[in-house]
Design a protein around this nucleic acid. Structure first.
Lengths: 257, 257
DNA sequence: TAGTGGTCTAGACCACGTG
DNA sequence: ACGTGGTCTAGACCACTAG
C-alpha cells in the first residue's frame, strides 16, 4: 500500500491527505477541518498521531488552530509592498494593475504607532551607516496596522548628529516624508540598497506582529545614500510573508549583457 | 516563578532556555545539543515534553536533527543573490564589498542541472506572459548546486512561438546568456518586474532543495519585457531563506519625492 | 457548561548511521 | 551493536471561549 521506496509514517500520510484536500479546494480557505478526535476516529489512530499531522500542516502555514473552535484552512491575502515607491511614483506593468485595484477596492482601515528613541545602534546598523563606536542614532519605530491587525514593522535609524534638531525627532507622521526632511538638512537620499533576508520570526517578532505558526518573515535592510555616497538612513522592515508581496522594477540602463 | 500574566508551558520554558544559550553563543553554530534523554533528566520531564521544546526550535530554524547523532545548532551562511545582475554589472556600495569577497574567498564548487520541456504553462505564467489559453511555452528548469548541495531552483518560461528554433531549446548552459538569444530573435528584454513572495516550502520544494524544517523560501517571479512592452520571459526562482540574501539597488531617477 | 485544542506522562517499538 | 531520534499508544488534566 505504501508508495514504493517511501514507507511513509502514518501522520505524514494523514497530513498528505489533508494537504491534498486543501490544495484541491475540497477544503476551502476559512473552512473548518474535522476535529482531532474525529480525525483520530477516521484514521483509527491515537490523538497524538493526528496531532503530529496537524502540527506539520500548521508549520507549513496551511492551517491555523483557533481554540477552542477547531482548525481552519488559512486564508492568505497579500498586499503589494514596493520599496521603490519613494523613488518611482508610478509603476506600469500590465498584470499588476489588477492587483493594485484589488488592494484599493476594499476600504481597509490603516493605522500606525510611532515612537522615537535615541539609541546606541546595533552593529548591523552602525556598519551600514558607517558610524564610529558610541556614535548615537535616532530610531523611528513604526508598526503599521490594517483593520487593527499588525501589518508590518519598520525601524528607521538616522545619525543623531544629522537629525537632532529636525522634525524626525517628533513621534508623529511626517507628511512630506522623512526624505524631504533629510533633503532640507542637506542630506537628500538619492540612492539606496536593499538587502532581503528570509527567515522564521524571533519570538519577539512573532508576538509584536501577531504571527501564527508557519509564518516566515522577510527582513528588508535598506541603506540610503546621498549623492556623494554618504549613508544617511538605515531602515529595517519586517514583513510577515503571509501579508506581503515585495515588488521591484528593473530598468536596464546599459545595453551590455 | 512564572512571569506574571504568562504562566508558560514547561516545553516553552525549556525552549526559551535553549534558545537563550544559542543566542548568547553559549551553544555555538554546529555544536551538539544534549540528547533528548539528557534534557529530560535535566528538566525532569517526559521525553515527549523535551521533544515539544526541540520541535519548536526546529521550526524556528535554530536547530537541526541529525539522526542518529543528535541535534545540532544550525549553521547559516547566506550568499548574495542579485536579480539585477544581468542589467547592472557592477554594484558599488561600501559595506557590500566585504560580502562579495567573503563569497569569492572560498572555492565552492558550483554545478547545475538543466532540462528543457515544452509545456502548457500554469496560469500564473500564462498571465504574466499574456498568452492565450493553450498557447505553449518552453521551460528551462535549472537547479543550481554548491558543493553538491542544492542551492536554488530556477524555471524560465518562454513563449514557444518565439523561441522554438533557438538555442533556448537546448538543455545546456547558454554562455552568452538567454537574453542575448532573445535579442537575436528581435525580443531583447530591457525591463523586468520582480515579485517576491515569502512562504514555507511545499513538500516538493523541500525534497528538491533538501530543505530542513524551519526553512522558508523566497519565490521570485520575474517577468521580462521588450522595449515595446511585450513580455517575453517569465522566471520563477525559489531561494532557500537560509542560503541567500536578495540584494537590490535603487537609483532615484526623478527628483520628485 | 460543553467541547475544543493544549499540555503532559510513561511507556513501547522502530529505523538508521556511526563506531 | 549501540544509542540516537522517529513514531505511536492510551490515557489524563487543563484553559479557553462559544453558545
Amino acid at each position: 500500500m505504501a508508495a514504493r521506496g517511501a514507507p511513509q509514517a502514518v501522520y505524514v500520510r494523514i497530513a498528505n491527505a489533508l494537504r491534498g484536500q486543501i490544495e484541491s479546494g475540497q477544503l476551502e480557505p476559512g473552512q473548518q477541518l474535522p476535529t482531532e478526535h474525529a480525525l483520530g476516529a477516521e484514521y483509527e489512530v491515537a490523538r497524538a498521531t493526528v496531532r503530529q499531522a496537524l502540527t506539520l500542516l500548521k508549520n507549513e502555514g496551511l492551517i491555523i488552530p483557533a481554540r477552542p473552535r477547531g482548525y481552519f484552512v488559512r486564508k492568505i491575502r497579500r498586499s503589494i509592498y514596493r520599496p521603490q515607491a519613494e523613488f518611482r511614483p508610478r509603476p506600469h506593468f500590465a498584470e499588476m494593475d489588477q492587483w493594485m485595484e484589488e488592494q484599493a477596492e476594499d476600504g481597509r482601515e490603516p493605522s500606525q504607532t510611532i515612537n522615537v528613541e535615541i539609541v546606541n545602534p546595533p552593529h548591523e546598523i552602525a556598519n551600514r551607516l558607517g558610524l564610529k563606536p558610541d556614535e548615537m542614532t535616532v530610531v523611528r519605530r513604526r508598526i503599521r496596522y490594517l483593520d487593527g491587525e499588525p501589518f508590518n514593522a519598520n525601524d528607521s535609524y538616522f545619525p543623531l548628529s544629522l537629525v537632532s534638531t529636525s522634525e524626525i525627532m517628533v513621534p508623529h507622521d511626517i507628511q512630506r516624508g522623512a526624505n524631504e526632511v533629510l533633503a532640507e538638512l542637506g542630506a537628500r537620499q538619492v540612492r539606496a540598497i536593499d538587502e532581503i533576508e528570509v527567515r522564521m520570526p524571533t519570538p519577539t517578532e512573532a508576538t509584536q506582529l501577531d504571527l501564527g505558526p508557519g509564518t516566515p518573515v522577510a527582513v528588508i535592510r535598506s541603506t540610503g545614500y546621498t549623492a556623494d555616497d554618504r549613508p544617511v538612513r538605515a531602515v529595517v522592515t519586517v514583513l510577515p510573508g503571509t501579508k506581503h508581496v515585495i515588488v521591484f522594477e528593473r530598468d536596464r540602463l546599459d545595453p551590455d549583457d
